[in-house]
Design a protein around this nucleic acid. Structure first.
Lengths: 133, 133
DNA sequence: CGGTATCCACCAAGATACTG
DNA sequence: CAGTATCTTGGTGGATACCG
């Protein structure tokens, strides 16, 4: 962590923690941006339902391209949120699964998604009202 | 909602819900993308600590430009996650505050951020290990 | 099947300047 | 103070083609 974040450690609601998502240099912020990325978040959500193969993810996450999926997968693997298992067989088989940390995070994302899914009518109304102005 | 999502309603953990974040046409997905946007998520986190003025948010969310902040604010207001209160005074004073739904969402994001902040050592290690390969 | 490589278009986003 | 307007550019992401 940076010393800036240490200095600020007594201020926020996350007082006991040294890290700070608001700090642009903090690695928690970088991880936060990876996770909240357009595709990465949906990949995490998909993997929360169990391990998936590349093609399965491609189909599950509607609209993702191979390139973006590959990129998201690498990013999440880098942050240690998922594991990649290449079975080295022919035809190839590669499984992606969440690590414990990844699973924790995915669960929160799931709650968020559930909240949003339940709020769809409210959301649609707000948007319509805003656009009508 | 799309009929596809209705058809899929009995499959996932969100079985009871008709909406589906995985569906690119579902409004919950649009909201999900707004919320998980780079700046919007940090704005929500900041507002979870109480109402803020424009300038306060600008300072709190390290690295955000006026343009991006303004944009994020409009997006969140559109989704009905925050309210904008213009006091119409001179000098101008405008307050941004979360709606109940916005607050629900922000709380989940806070949990996510806390998880990440606590995991910083793990995160740093994973990243270093991955980059070393 | 599970990707990578390359090219390209577009737009997100920064910088700057200006206004109510 | 609280923004909007305009310009410019770098990176995101789509399409296509190809490889182990």
């Amino acid at each position: 962590m940076t010393t800036d974040a240490v200095d600020r450690a007594e201020l926020g609601p996350s007082a006991a923690l040294v890290a700070d998502v608001f700090a642009s240099a903090c690695s928690s912020r970088a991880a936060f941006e990876t996770i909240t990325g357009k595709w990465a978040s949906l990949v995490l959500l998909a993997l929360a339902e169990g391990p998936h193969r590349f093609g399965e993810l491609r189909r599950r996450v509607e609209g993702v391209s191979e390139k973006m999926l590959s990129q998201a997968l690498h990013g999440l693997e880098r942050e240690g949120l998922l594991t990649r298992t290449d079975h080295g067989s022919v035809p190839p088989r590669v499984d992606y699964a969440l690590t414990p940390l990844g699973d924790d995070i995915a669960r929160r994302l799931r709650e968020l998604a559930d909240l949003l899914q339940a709020a769809v009518p409210t959301l649609d109304e707000s948007r319509a009202a805003y656009d009508a102005r």
